[in-house]
Simulated scan of single mutants.
Amino acid sequence: MYTGLQHLHSGLAYLVLLALIVIVIYALLGSLSNKEFLEKDRKIALIGFILSHIQLTVGLILYFVSPLGFEMLKSGSAMSDPATRLMAVEHPLINIIAIVVISIGYIKAKKGSIPRSRFRSIYMMYAIGLLLLLSRIPWSVWLG
């Protein structure tokens, strides 16, 4: 189960990052071209919203079954080693914040009335969320 969750979390991460990049560019172009914000635009943003929440759910499950997550935090050794601190504290905390930021962007766009501001909410908040996600990816594990 643990290995399957790891693979799912890693594989889904590629999909989430790709979706967020495409959505940020799409929303930026929509804003710059003064395009009308249509239902399909909301649904495109919804794809990134849903994928990021699925990734968060899988990550939280993995966090509690992994020896690199909550167990390291409970043992007290997580803060002394930078790699362990990244996995046990920084990665989950910053990624939760990133998903909250993405959620705020989606909700603001969904409730907005001015098309340009709806696109702006998506591209700005999704871009901030994307940068936060990229900042806490354990690159040595991911690429190694």
Rank of each mutant, 00 (worst) to 15 (best):
G129V: 07
I97N: 03
A109M: 04
L38M: 15
F49N: 05
I25C: 01
P92W: 06
E90I: 10
S80F: 06
P67W: 05
I44V: 14
P92R: 06
L56I: 06
R116Q: 13
Q55I: 05
L28P: 00
T57D: 03
N95C: 04
M125F: 15
M124V: 14
A98Q: 06
M72E: 14
L29C: 05
N95R: 13
L56T: 13
I61C: 00
L20P: 02
L134R: 05
R85A: 09
V100K: 08
Y63V: 01
I44S: 04
Y106R: 07
S31D: 11
Q55D: 08
A88F: 03
I102S: 08
S121K: 02
A127S: 15
L62T: 02
E39H: 14
L73M: 12
K40E: 15
F37C: 02
I114F: 12
I99K: 12
S113F: 07
R42D: 10
G30R: 02
R85P: 00
H53F: 10
R42K: 15
D41I: 06
I122L: 06
I21A: 09
L51A: 11
Y26T: 04
V100H: 11
H91W: 04
F119Y: 14
M125S: 12
F49R: 03
A98D: 12
A19D: 11
M79L: 10
R136I: 00
R118Q: 15
L93C: 01
K43D: 10
H53M: 06
A45Y: 07
P82G: 03
V89K: 01
A27H: 05
D41W: 12
F64A: 00
V58G: 06
S33I: 08
L46G: 08
L68Y: 11
P67N: 13
N95I: 00
M125E: 09
L68M: 11
I99M: 13
L32E: 13
D81I: 06
Y63W: 01
R136K: 10
K74E: 09
S117R: 11
L20M: 13
I114D: 15
R118V: 06
Y63R: 04
R116V: 12
D41Y: 09
I47C: 06
L62V: 03
L73F: 11
Y26P: 03
I102N: 10
I114Q: 14
H53G: 07
Y106N: 09
F119L: 06
I102F: 13
A127P: 01
D81E: 10
L131G: 15
A127T: 05
Y26V: 05
L130R: 02
V89E: 08
T84C: 02
G59K: 03
Y63F: 06
K35R: 15
I54N: 04
K35M: 08
K35D: 08
Y123G: 02
S117N: 11
L28T: 02
S66D: 10
G112L: 08
I97G: 04
Y106E: 10
K111S: 14
K43M: 12
Y126G: 02
G129L: 09
I23C: 04
L132E: 12
S75Y: 00
L93F: 14
A83G: 00
A109N: 06
K110F: 14
T84Y: 00
I107A: 13
H91S: 01
F37M: 05
